[in-house]
Amino acid sequence: MSNILAEIVAQKHKEVAERQTNRLVQDLERATLFNRKTLSLKSFLVAPTRTGIIAEFKRKSPSKGIINDMVKVQTVTGAYNRFGASGLSVLTDGPYFGGSIDDLIQAREINNIPILRKDFIVDEYQIIEAKAIGADVILLIAECLTKEQVAQFAKTAHDLDLEVLLEIHSAEQLDKVAKDVDLVGVNNRDLTTFTVDVNRSFELAPLIPADKVKVAESGITDVNVIISLKKAGFDGFLIGEHFMKQSSPDKAFERFAGDLQHQLASL
């Protein structure tokens, strides 16, 4: 685990311990959103009226600093939904990514498509919390979890009707793909060096179990890359920075989605 990732995980353990004392599991289970019927990201990724893009709302990152802290979550995620995103990814980590639980709640208020809670899950409490704030999918990062933790966390998520996206970066991490993992995401960003190489997705695609939905993450800036990834077996494409670094992420997504749909129609 890289130094920055280890630092984030250590901070996350402290943060979760504090939240558990402020809001008990019983309180989470009484939240209005806890009982809502969740939406299936797997289904939305292949819906003919959608793009397959999981569009991300992210204000900053450890490698890039501030990306865009001038836009509103409802404005951006509403446009993502309106112009064909298959799902939304909302950062809920504060210290390193500038996100919050309230961001996801606000996105949920106006969008009826699947929402991925993008965070560093280190405790089952966060999975229960994800259900209580309106998420449909959780992210598990292979780099910072054991095989046993992935299996247990994925089962807990399924018990709550949440889908699970397991993020990997190497062939060795495929050993952590558990029965209850629904989607396997290939992060093209190396979490130890933060360098990005989209070829990572193409290299790992044939190795991902056939019963898992494939998602390519990071470094996707061109609609032609998506078309190539589709041919390699990917149904999902998690894109955030490419849109968020624009002054108007909503307009950037509208243009990108329009170009993609035009290209797909001409195939």
Rank of each mutant, 00 (worst) to 15 (best):
M1E: 02
N3I: 00
L5G: 13
V9Y: 00
E15C: 14
R19S: 04
N22F: 11
R23F: 02
L24S: 15
Q26C: 09
L28K: 07
E29C: 11
R30S: 05
T32W: 07
T32K: 14
K37A: 13
T38F: 10
L39W: 00
L41A: 05
V46A: 06
V46L: 08
P48F: 06
T51K: 03
G52N: 01
I53C: 00
K60S: 14
S63M: 07
G65Q: 13
N68P: 14
D69R: 02
A79Q: 00
Y80Q: 11
N81F: 00
N81E: 15
F83S: 09
A85C: 08
G87F: 00
L88V: 07
S89I: 07
Y96F: 15
G98P: 06
G99L: 05
I101E: 13
D102Y: 12
D102I: 11
D103Q: 05
D103R: 02
D103S: 09
L104C: 12
E109K: 13
N111G: 04
N111Q: 02
L116N: 05
E124K: 14
I128M: 11
K131V: 01
A132Y: 04
A132I: 03
V137H: 05
I141M: 07
E143D: 14
E143A: 15
C144T: 14
T146K: 05
K147D: 09
T156S: 12
V164C: 10
V164D: 12
L165N: 07
L166T: 02
H169P: 00
H169I: 02
D175R: 10
L183S: 09
V184G: 12
G185A: 07
G185M: 08
R189L: 03
D190Q: 14
T195A: 10
V196K: 07
D197N: 15
S201Y: 01
F202Q: 12
L207A: 06
D211T: 15
V213P: 06
K214W: 01
K214L: 03
V215H: 01
I220H: 02
T221K: 10
D222L: 05
V225D: 04
I226D: 04
I227P: 01
S228C: 04
L229V: 05
K230A: 11
A232W: 09
G236E: 01
F237H: 06
L238M: 05
H242S: 12
K251D: 09
E254V: 12
A257H: 01
A257T: 15
D259A: 10
L260T: 09
S266C: 02
